[in-house]
Design a protein around this nucleic acid. Structure first.
Length: 565
RNA sequence: UGGGACGUCGCCAAGCGGUAAGGCCCGGGGUUUUGAUCCCCGUAUGCGCAGGUUCGAAUCCUGCCGUCCCAGCCA
């Protein structure tokens, strides 16, 4: 064993896979799959599964299929399919030729259903949905057998064929597995295998089928047909594993994949269920699936997150079987770490306050050459025009303040980032007493040099009035005001916890001229403010829109907080 | 009240009988023309609780307690 062997803390799924490889199971091969139902957009919880499945395939020289679990045409559509393909790719994963649809296997599935009937292990049941529920029993009381449970193989075969032929109405009959009506596991009480759905047009198979296989039947068969070795899913399917195994053990499928369950991701201040996310979109609580406040991949992308930051997040949170709610700070840390290294710096004044430098030569313009990144020279430089009239941020000036306030105060000095030290001599107010501009003087000796005999501790950013560019800036905050909005059970709906201030739009912001050439999706650090990206949806002819991805860490905000308290 | 799973720092999470990794958050200090970054330093005598086995237990055993999931012709 080598001394400097790096032990990557593997999660329990990888441990299982490693011991399987060692034991020579599946010929030492690893084949996983990511199997979303195309009934909504992918969210960060799916990213966890994608990183797990594709990551394992990459690390063990295996493969990972993308498979659409499209057995319920009612809720599915091609828009979702397209978005899922795009999102998986954007995250940085490639399924190569291995794109499948569960609907590819409808004919095979039907043959296996016939096989089960022939073996006396499945039957057509005429009970209504309500009756089925009654017969199923409860968590503590055994169910009782359906009166149709002992139909002959011939009759079952005939009925299934006629179900397929469209002879019966929706809900009239289902195909059920004949397992155990008194099993303590509800999933084993003769689960439904097929139901009738006439008149719906399936996005892949059109009108060729009017019976559709259930998840519990489709999934194990699809996995086996694709020669999946490890079928990784979330914890709520653990109860289905006996059924998964039963299907594989009682049909002539070519192999028996192993189902492994891990806990799904919960993130504070948002919701993760597709049902709830769909509701937010449908009810107009957000702009759409790609609203930058949404925890969807599309939303995070538009918000300014990078694929790498999301992958990093997934490795940081790990994979286990314990219930978890990850704090937003974890996600924010990942994107800050990425953007700190990889994004160019710019200056942008979000809440402009005019500054007139009264002793600056009339009409003079200096082109200042400024580094695009303070720690990375390879990012080059740009030039910024300096003029006698500037904007600074309203938050960077106070008429009087405590010594802790390291910005501009009346009579005080401050460094203009990348430029001169200025002193505020006069505060100009309008009739209402509102500060409208500041008259300052500047120290010509302080460009690229510290002033003699005194120290100026504050540095603030600025933009030239003459050359600045108007922009719209959207400041996002958490979507919900409660850490766990869906903990609200019956009494309160999660929608009541929507944060009314999750979006603040600034329409008066002024950004430095270099930003005028930025392209949609391009990311920057606005110095002293945060990371921003150019919105993906730029309306023609309007000011550019910048989305705030995340603020900078702000220890001043913490000090302020303490002072108030 | 049946079955399945899970309980290690505020939040994630390693640990797999030899004496509690790491990350995020947090606190303190240093550098800095971003109150950013970066760099130091600090943070569980404790692993849901109670017993037991053992020279030795977060790890094994027993019993409690707590949390989550399951009664779709959804996935």
């Amino acid at each position: 064993m080598s001394e400097d062997e790096t032990v990557v803390a593997g999660n329990f799924v990888r441990q299982i896979i490693e011991s399987d490889i060692e034991a020579g199971k599946h010929d030492g091969k690893v084949a996983t799959r990511f199997p979303p139902e195309p009934n909504g957009y992918l969210h960060i919880g799916h990213a966890k599964s994608i990183c797990l499945n594709f990551g394992i395939a990459m690390d063990y020289q295996g493969t990972c299929n993308l498979r659409f679990d499209d057995t319920n045409p009612h809720k599915e559509n091609v828009e979702y399919i397209e978005s899922i393909r795009q999102d998986v790719h954007w995250l940085g994963y490639d399924w190569g030729e291995r794109l499948y649809y569960a609907s590819n296997y409808f004919e095979r599935l039907y043959e296996y259903a016939v096989e089960l009937i022939t073996a006396g292990k499945a039957y057509v049941c005429d009970l209504t949905a309500d009756e089925t529920r009654e017969y199923r029993g409860t968590l503590t009381a055994a169910g009782k057998p359906s009166p149709f449970r002992e139909r002959s193989v011939e009759e079952n075969l005939d009925l299934l064929q006629r179900m397929r032929a469209g002879e019966f109405e929706d809900g009239a009959r289902v195909l059920r597995a004949k397992i155990d009506m008194s099993s303590p596991n509800m999933n084993m009480r003769d689960p439904t295998l097929y139901r009738i759905r006439r008149g719906v047009i399936h996005h892949q198979t059109g009108e060729s089928w009017c019976i559709y296989p259930m998840y519990d039947f489709t999934h194990p068969v699809s996995d086996a047909l694709e020669r999946i070795t490890h079928s990784i899913c979330t914890l709520e399917f653990a109860d289905h594993r006996p059924l998964y195994d039963w299907i594989l053990d009682n049909t002539s499928v070519p192999c028996h994949p192993q189902q492994i369950e891990f806990s799904r991701l919960n993130l504070e201040y948002t919701v993760m269920s597709k049902r709830k996310l769909t509701a937010l979109v449908d009810e107009g609580c957000v702009e759409g699936w790609d609203d930058p406040r949404m925890p969807t991949i599309a939303g995070l992308r538009r918000r300014g997150f990078t694929p790498g930051s999301i992958r990093e997040f997934c490795t940081r949170i790990g994979v286990s079987k314990s219930e978890n709610t990850v704090q937003m700070g974890m996600l924010e840390s990942c994107i800050r770490e990425d953007l700190n290294v990889n994004s160019q710096r710019r200056m942008a004044v979000l809440h402009p306050l005019k500054v007139v430098i009264t002793d600056y030569p009339e009409g003079q313009v200096e082109q200042l050459e400024v580094a695009n990144h303070p720690q990375d020279e390879s990012m080059g430089v740009r030039s910024i025009p300096f003029t006698g009239e500037l904007y600074i941020d309203k938050n960077d000036f106070l008429e009087t303040a405590s010594k802790k306030f390291k910005r501009l105060v009346t009579g005080g000095e401050v460094r203009l980032r990348n430029a001169y030290v200025i002193r505020c001599n006069e505060v100009i107010k309008d009739a209402a007493g509102e500060i409208i501009e500041l008259h300052c003087s500047y120290d010509p000796a302080t460009l690229g040099a510290n002033p003699e005999g005194r120290k100026v501790k504050g540095v603030i950013h600025w933009v030239s009035v003459e050359y600045g560019v108007e922009a719209e800036v959207r400041l996002y905050d958490r979507l919900f005001s409660q850490p766990v909005p869906d903990s609200a059970k019956e009494d309160k709906d999660y929608r009541e916890y929507l944060n009314p201030d999750s979006l603040r739009t600034l329409t008066q912001s002024i950004v430095e001229p270099a930003l005028a050439e930025a392209n949609p999706g391009e990311r920057f650090q606005f110095e002293r403010e945060g990371y921003f990206c150019v919105d993906l949806h730029q309306p023609a002819g309007s000011p550019m829109i910048f989305n705030r991805t995340v603020t900078l860490r702000d220890s001043w905000a913490k000090i302020e907080e303490k002072q108030k308290a």
